[in-house]
């Protein structure tokens, strides 16, 4: 059988290094998701308010994030800030800023969607049953909103993990970059390493994302 280059991964600590590389991008995405959920909840609830200026500003923010590729945002923050403000931002910090910025927009859109999808008669029925305003929110509105919110936010986690693979392009040493290093280091001894290593990276991403998107799908079906 032809050498598929999978043997490289068994040499030394190569597999461990690859997993460490995956953790680098996973950590960035987890931090960004945490920030996005907190800020997204706040901005999302603000967006349902009546203030015209706030609505226009948040709408503009959402549209910018929706249209601009995340790569462009990464370049602007990573290269642009250094040039304009003279701040030397390291690549990991730049990625966390960009992905939080992006995630917050996505999250606030999800929150807004969940909030406005609650029909008005829910509030009215609760009031008619004699529930106070606090009781209405605690027992009726918040549980219902959460049911719509949770599957979509879990989905955001997988999207975040997939998107953070881009950080390699501004020089963060994550799983793809480590893979490249391993391939280069073993060019002589196993010339087919590129196939094996990239296949494993592909599978690693699948293993990381699949359970999460499965959970999101299950919850969505269960609660809808």
């Amino acid at each position: 059988m032809r050498n598929l280059g999978l043997d490289v991964l068994l040499k030394g600590t190569n597999m461990l290094r690859l997993l460490e590389g995956l953790w680098v991008s996973l950590r960035i995405s987890l931090i960004a998701v945490a920030v996005s959920i907190v800020l997204g909840l706040i901005i999302g609830s603000i967006m349902t308010g009546k203030n015209v200026i706030i609505r226009a500003v948040t709408r503009l923010y959402l549209e910018i994030v929706r249209i601009m590729p995340q790569m462009v945002l990464l370049f602007i923050v990573f290269f642009g800030t250094t040039r304009v403000f003279g701040i030397n931002l390291d690549a990991t910090a730049a990625s966390i800023i960009v992905f939080s910025f992006w995630g917050t927009a996505e999250m606030s859109d999800i929150v807004r969607g969940a909030l406005i999808s609650i029909p008005k008669h829910r509030y009215e029925s609760a009031a008619a049953l004699g529930l106070s305003k606090v009781q209405t929110y605690v027992h009726v509105i918040i549980p219902e909103t959460l049911r719509r919110l949770i599957p979509l936010s879990i989905n955001l986690v997988t999207r975040m993990i997939k998107t953070t693979s881009l950080v390699m392009m501004i020089g963060v040493v994550e799983v793809l970059k480590v893979g490249q290093q391993i391939i280069e280091a073993n060019r002589k001894s196993s010339p087919n390493a590129a196939f094996g290593v990239y296949l494993v990276v592909f599978v690693l991403y699948y293993i990381a994302c699949r359970p999460i998107s499965f959970l999101a799908g299950r919850l969505e079906r269960k609660w809808s």
């Binding site: 598929l4 997939k162 881009l166 392009m169 990276v201 991403y205 699948y206």
Partner: peptide
């Protein structure tokens, strides 16, 4: 469940092997 970047790396650098 996988990012495009990883797919492209596999298709472009992996498959030629």
């Amino acid at each position: 469940n996988t990012p495009l970047l990883v797919q492209l790396f596999f298709l472009y650098f992996g498959l030629p092997k």
